[in-house]
Design a protein around this nucleic acid. Structure first.
Length: 778
DNA sequence: GGGCCTCAAGTTTTT
DNA sequence: CTTGAGGCCC
């Protein structure tokens, strides 16, 4: 008798059939782990008579959750909708909406995103009369977040600071921050997890409810769980112990966010009776791609040893190219995509992956020039845009008046003549009487010194009240339209008329689309649920495979995805691995995480992979010289296609020419046809900018760092390059045409030039290339 | 109170 | 280079 399980390989089948007790599935990249999970769910329901209601599958992203649900749905004739498939965060929200009143919160709580968190920290710092320069929001928040990820509350935190005066202040801010969140009835992302765990630990009734309900638990991407998530899962699974975790320690890339790789490495210690199953056959990539990935990851020391294999053919070699600048790099990638794109190839078979979102800008520019449709994922989240946050703040206040942060955000947006001074008085009054800001505004006429502002405040509150009344009989879309109309938000933008204002208007339309979409897909749409869905989506969740565009995204965002053709841009030391990881306190750990990220990137590719590197890149407005990433060097050389030695050519007549030699010219000139069409328009988050002009500076298009054919293809210097030694040395006084006079503090030998560090008297420390810094010794 | 200007900092990754 | 925040002037 044939069944849906016959298509699985023996290891996969074993994983599906092992339903009772703890199970660790070590699933290498592309080894079909989602298949296993979905089949396992189907098996539990169909073969083991498990009630779908008793199954809980936890994923990392909404996208993964959606995909899993769809696939389970396709396998099952009934019951799929009763399986709980959700991310950690949305699962916690769901639990807390039901029980958080037992912790003294209102069940109608709002969720604060990073921006809101920063605002609260800023307020706390101000309240405590601390120097905002010393306590920057980012730094403070990272302390708070890592404390929360270890379930350390403000009291414990304060007790652990010892005699460190800085940390003592952080503890104060943490306490104040937490109090403010509570006063605003708000939870931040970390709180969602922490409060759920707190609930389970304090309230055995709530815990038992979920323990009894979730007899079978599955956790995807287990290598990315942190301490709180581990506790959350352990608590719920404690009764039945049918806990199946799936992950790949080689793909653990969220350590910076508190993910603890030891959760997966130590699973067998926590559950000594755990069954361990390895999935090592890869169904995604060619042999060469897989060998490259294995070659790289084997440089890590702390990992469970395993080697992926495939029955697929060799495939083509991994192309590695170096270019003079990030512009040349981006052009070459675009050109390569145009070359590969044939009638039977789709644009959505291509992805360009990079380490930092900042790299997207230049790539995007070249895509626009080429007319190739693309989409940038990630970066500034759609929901973090000013106009979106403004309107959402209105909706939040209508939904829950306790949120001071949102009130403050829009009390004077659009301008209604309530300035900082008046607002400050109202806030002081609210603090004095311990009431919410909105309530203080409501009785503004009893606040001293407000003058005419009190009328304006009152009419603001009246307006909110009207919205609240209307909310009862308007649909969400109608409410949205009414808000926009009443406050005149779109009107202000229309009158502005600038490109920026137009983009904002487009974004507002997009927000409206999302609200309509939510409303249509939800059985019982509520403002609360809408706000919560919005708070918990990531851009990558919107990836639509049927959309025929090239995908541009960070390596992190690419986890869990696959593409026939992958480009990894910016393979440079200092960028990837990142500068931060190279200077990290915890030694090689940080670099190992970067290496895993590289492994993730390589294993996204199914058929072809191209890696690129720019010798010189603009970072924060100045040029930075980087060497080829160590990760490229860790790929066995026989798997790489390095460019054939290029011919010498004339030096370019531009500012980048540098005496004899110049950059070698390659065959990759960018003069092909089909590149002049207008950029395709596309909907969405304002990334569609208009086409810029071609830089026309006549730069040479490509350089081959391996030119000269030495035995070591990774030599940092081309042997046929002539570089002149600067006539100054460390300690000398020099003059720069723009920065004036300064002292040389360092001269570094880098690829094809010397990097000079100068401490300028007026402009601070600059790093520049001797070749075109034109420094004059004084 | 509002707008403009200057200055400073930032960029590692995101639920 | 870009963006955001704070300061200053109207």
């Amino acid at each position: 008798m044939s069944s849906i399980y016959d298509s699985l390989n023996p290891a996969q089948q074993e994983a599906v059939r092992h339903t009772e007790g703890p199970l660790l599935i070590l699933a290498g990249a592309g080894s079909g782990k989602t298949r296993v999970l979905t089949h396992r769910i189907a098996y539990l329901i169909e073969e083991c008579d498990v009630n779908p209601w008793n199954i809980f599958a936890i994923t990392f992203t909404n996208k993964a959750a959606k995909e899993m649900r769809e696939r389970v749905d396709a396998l099952l004739s009934y019951g799929a909708e009763d399986v709980w498939v959700s991310t950690f965060h949305s699962a916690c929200v769901r639990i807390l909406r039901r029980f958080i009143d037992r912790l003294g919160y209102d069940r109608n709580f709002t969720i604060y995103d990073t921006d809101d968190q920063k605002t609260v920290v800023k307020e706390a710092v101000k309240k405590l009369d601390l120097d905002p320069k010393l306590f920057r929001e980012r730094a403070v928040l990272s302390h708070i977040s890592s404390a929360k990820n270890k379930m350390i509350g403000p009291d414990t935190f304060a007790a652990q600071t010892g005699n460190d005066p800085y940390m003592k202040k952080i503890a104060d801010i943490y306490r104040e921050y937490q109090e403010r969140l509570k006063a605003n009835n708000a939870l931040d992302f970390d709180d969602l997890l922490c409060r759920a765990v707190e609930l389970f630990e304090k309230d055995s009734e709530a815990l038992e409810y979920y323990q009894n309900r979730f007899k079978y638990i599955m956790v995807d991407e287990y290598q990315d769980t942190n301490a709180v998530q581990f506790r959350f899962v352990s608590l719920i699974a404690a009764k039945y112990r049918n806990l199946c975790v799936v992950g790949d320690d080689d793909q653990s890339i969220y350590g910076f966010r508190g993910a603890d790789i030891r959760n997966i490495l130590g699973f067998e210690k926590v559950f000594p009776d755990a069954k361990v199953i390895r999935l090592e056959e890869n169904y995604r990539s060619t042999k060469i791609i897989l060998d490259a990935a294995n070659g790289v990851i084997h440089h890590n020391t702390t990992r469970k040893d395993k080697t992926l294999w495939t029955e697929k053919g060799e495939g083509s070699k991994i192309i590695f190219r170096t270019y003079p600048t990030e512009h040349d790099e981006a052009r070459a990638i675009v050109k390569d995509i145009a070359r590969r794109k044939k009638a039977d190839t789709q644009y959505n078979e291509f992805a360009v992956l990079y380490r930092t979102n900042a790299q997207a800008r230049v790539l995007e520019e070249k895509f626009i020039m080429s007319g190739i449709p693309y989409r940038v994922y990630g970066g500034v989240n759609f929901y973090q845009r000013k106009e979106i946050k403004d309107i959402l703040a209105y909706l939040k206040i209508i939904d829950s008046g306790l949120d001071d942060v949102s009130v403050r955000r829009i009390i004077n947006v659009p301008k209604r003549g309530i300035g900082a001074t008046s607002l400050g008085r109202a806030e002081a009054y609210a603090a004095k009487w311990n009431i919410n800001l909105l309530e203080a505004l409501r009785i503004a006429d009893t606040i001293d010194g407000l003058g005419r502002a009190s009328d304006k405040m009152k009419s603001f509150v009246d307006m909110i009240d009207v919205f609240r009344t209307k909310q009862k009989f308007l649909s969400l879309t109608e409410l949205y339209d009414d808000v926009i109309e009443t406050i005149g938000y779109a009107q202000v933008l229309q009158e502005d008329g600038s490109d920026e204002a137009k983009t904002r208007l487009e974004n507002l339309d997009e927000l409206r689309n999302k609200i309509v979409e939510y409303q249509d897909n939800s059985e019982e749409p509520t403002l609360t649920e809408l706000m919560e869905q919005i708070a918990l989506v990531a851009d990558i969740d919107n990836l639509d495979e049927s959309d025929d565009r090239v995908a541009l995204m960070t390596l992190h965002s690419a986890k869990g995805l696959e593409f026939p053709h992958v480009y990894m841009a910016g393979m440079e030391e200092g960028l990837f691995p990142s500068y931060m990881s190279l200077n990290s306190d915890d030694g090689d750990d940080a670099v190992e995480e970067e290496r895993r990220l590289c492994y993730v990137g390589i294993t996204r590719a199914m058929q072809t992979l191209m890696m690129t590197c720019a010798m010189q890149r603009m970072v924060h407005g100045n040029f930075q010289i980087n060497e080829v990433s160590r990760f490229v060097k860790e790929i066995p050389p026989k798997l790489l296609d390095l460019e054939a030695p290029a011919q010498r050519s004339r030096s370019g007549g531009d500012s980048f020419g540098r005496g004899a030699g110049g950059f070698a010219k390659s065959a990759n000139s960018f003069s092909g046809n089909g590149y002049s069409g207008p950029a395709n328009s596309f909907s969405g988050n304002g990334r569609s900018g208009s086409a810029g002009s071609f830089s026309g500076k006549g730069r040479s298009k490509s350089a081959n760092p391996f030119a000269g054919g030495g035995s070591n293809p990774f030599a940092t210097k081309g042997s046929d390059m002539v570089k002149t030694l600067p006539d100054y040395s460390v300690g000398d006084r020099v003059k720069h045409i723009k920065f004036g006079e300064g002292t040389v503090t360092e001269i570094k030998d880098v690829q094809k030039d010397y990097q000079v560090t100068v401490e300028f008297d007026g402009s601070g420390v600059k790093k520049m290339l001797a070749g075109f810094a034109r420094l004059k010794k004084i």
